[in-house]
Design a protein around this nucleic acid. Structure first.
Length: 274
DNA sequence: AGGCAGGTTCTTA
DNA sequence: TAAGAACCTGCC
């Protein structure tokens, strides 16, 4: 399927933005993207101001992928809220204008960001992949010939022992993952029901989960529930705030899109402070 | 060899 | 209520 839109979209920027960990770059800047129990090959070409997105997937999943990429949202409109005098954000946003906040699954985000604590991106990627091989299902074959595994269901994850989880290099996070899986499976935690809560209540509810603190909860709110105002503060964003916003970040000004601004800041700052 | 990486929990004052 | 230590693992 081809999709043309009047916005700049940069798959590489998205793949490296730290919101998704199952994008694999292949030849010609084409990505194999796995989300939940689906996968697609996605590439982008450019014509003037337009981006042409090409998605190769099961026909019945066309809508899933256009929504996944958040193609219905205008990010240039969001960027137009950036104040001229906010030079650092302006620079970051200009530089990272191809980033979008994907529509990802709350369950997958919950587990992924529990995994993420005190890990760098390559380590997170490796863990998520090991988890998927250990408890996911084969859903197809990549062009490379490798099997593609779905992200594990709560039931499948709950079925793993602590030893199985440790084998995925989860370390002390194994017990968090196990508990989260058991709670979701048993209905103690109803991730669908949480979607009815407002941002603040949603964040608070997620913080109740074992192994989920303020930062991870914010990532789940932003990436799993697509609440674009959520603003996760990790060590990188902490540095941005200290260096560039000593008087405080203008949250009110950028509401309800603070999370989008956070992504621009995070991606740009991290790349320029390697 | 020791420190640190996109945090959270547990312990201690 | 708040600071500090401990926590798995892999990589520099």
């Amino acid at each position: 399927m081809r999709y043309i839109l009047e916005e700049y979209i940069d798959l590489k920027q998205i793949a490296e933005s730290g919101q998704c960990f199952r994008w694999r770059m292949g030849p010609n800047n084409e990505y194999l993207v796995i989300a939940g129990d689906k996968y697609a090959y996605i590439k982008a070409d450019y014509e003037g101001e337009s981006t042409i997105i090409e998605i190769e997937c099961d026909k019945k999943n066309d809508n899933f992928w256009t929504h996944y990429l958040d193609l219905e949202t205008s990010y240039s409109d969001i960027r137009s809220k950036i104040m001229k005098k906010d030079r650092f954000l302006g620079l970051a946003a200009d530089n990272r204008s191809g980033i979008r906040i994907l529509n990802q699954d709350p369950w997958e985000m919950l587990i992924t960001f529990i995994v993420s604590q005190r890990k760098n991106i390559p380590a997170i990627t490796a863990c998520v992949e090991k988890l998927s091989v250990a408890a996911g299902q084969k859903i197809g074959k990549a062009r490379s010939g490798e099997d593609i595994y779905s992200f594990p269901s709560p039931e499948a994850l709950a079925g793993l022992s602590i030893d199985d989880l440790n084998a995925c290099s989860l370390g002390y996070r194994s017990k968090y993952i196990k508990r989260a899986a058991e709670d979701v499976l048993g209905g103690m935690t109803d991730l669908d029901a949480l979607s009815h809560l407002d941002d603040e209540a949603l964040h608070a509810a997620l913080c109740e989960l074992y192994g989920v603190g303020v930062k991870v909860a914010n990532c789940v709110v932003l990436f799993g529930y697509h609440r674009l105002n959520a603003f996760p503060i990790d060590v990188w964003i902490e540095r941005v705030l200290t260096e560039h916003y000593p008087e405080g970040f203008p949250f009110k000004r950028y509401s309800p899109y603070c999370g989008v601004m956070q992504q621009y800041l995070f991606s740009y700052y991290r790349d320029t402070h390697k």
